[in-house]
Simulated scan of single mutants.
Amino acid sequence: MNTPPNFFSMRRNLSLINKCILAFFVCFLSVNHQSIAQKIKKVKIGMFTDLHIATMHDGKERLTAFMDSMKTAKPDFIIELGDFNTVAPKYAYAFDIWDTYPGPKYHVIGNHEMDGGYNLQQALARRNMPSSYYSFEKNGFYFIVLDGNDKKSPDVKGYQEHMNPPQIAWLKDELTKAKGPIVIFSHQGLGKDGIDNAEEVREILEAHNAQNKKTKVIANFYGHIHYDRAEAVNGIWYVCINSMSYKWLGEEYGHVRYSDEVDKNFKWIKYTAPYKDPLYTVVEISPAGTITISGKKTSWVGPSPKEVGYPQDKAAYDVPEIRARTLKFK
């Protein structure tokens, strides 16, 4: 059989076309990857927790100091991690101050938001929150806000530290929606001394991470226990942000630290070890794999917890400080 005279020429042309197609797809994938990478950029968060307006006589000044600081820090958003304020009219000034912030701002529901006979729906309405758990995106990161105040059963009373099945089902579904690294905010933590079913929740988070390398849960920021602490559990950071206001001691360690008038008008303040200055932080999370927490240190008002006989088994965490930290994640 005779080979057509242009056979080898055709083969060369087809080879050239294949190389061009391959080059196109390599270029397309590279550009697409760069586009995705460019969407994930450093995010800066102004953060505080446990202001406890009803307990602190100078809560207004503490909150104002945070707001003034954010004018300089210029974060991408601010968030408070719970135990901020009830909807009692006499404390409305705290919401008024909060509402002056011009940028994105988010609330987490703490266990004391419903003190004084108020309910969750009232707390949500004042915060313009349709739900006590929700999500949002910023700079390519996916943020999930949880509520650790669910009841195990309808008849249980008192403060709760629990997430119920409907919220857990919602969380599982929400994890699948993430297109970038995931950060979780809650009032009660998800770590080893968090909500009573924290182990169940951590297993869900860890199972997600095992199957999703690009949308891993990297951290849980929380408050509630008024500690300064950060610990990693199976690749996820659990970071307790210290209270803006005080360390709770309890009635057996009561001590009058301010004037008689303050003690009369703020009946719980004597059972705390207050911080002289408000504690808050700016957290920067980089897609390069670092979480940077800015530090802030103050001193006790009056005697320290140790000086009034408070147990020292967790003294390393009972400090009037938010330590500067750089945490790494993969």
Rank of each mutant, 00 (worst) to 15 (best):
M1H: 04
P5G: 00
S9L: 12
N18C: 13
F28V: 14
F28G: 02
Q38H: 12
K39H: 06
K44T: 13
F48K: 04
H52C: 03
H52V: 01
A54Y: 10
M56I: 06
D58C: 03
F66R: 08
D68T: 15
D68Q: 15
I79F: 08
G82V: 11
F84W: 05
T86F: 09
V87P: 03
P89V: 15
K90H: 11
A92F: 06
P104K: 15
H107M: 02
H107S: 12
H107D: 08
V108S: 05
G110M: 08
H112R: 11
D115W: 07
Y133S: 06
E137R: 10
K138P: 01
F141C: 05
F143W: 08
L146W: 04
D147S: 12
D150G: 12
S153A: 12
D155V: 11
E161C: 07
N164T: 04
L175I: 02
Q188E: 11
K192N: 13
I195K: 09
I195C: 11
I204G: 00
K213A: 15
K214F: 10
T215I: 08
G223E: 05
I225H: 13
Y227D: 13
D228E: 02
N242A: 14
K247P: 00
K247R: 14
S259R: 04
S259N: 01
S259A: 04
K264W: 00
Y271G: 03
A273P: 05
P278I: 08
T281Y: 05
T281G: 04
V282H: 00
A288M: 05
K296Y: 01
G309N: 09
K314P: 00
K314V: 13
K314A: 09
Y317S: 09
D318K: 11
F329E: 01
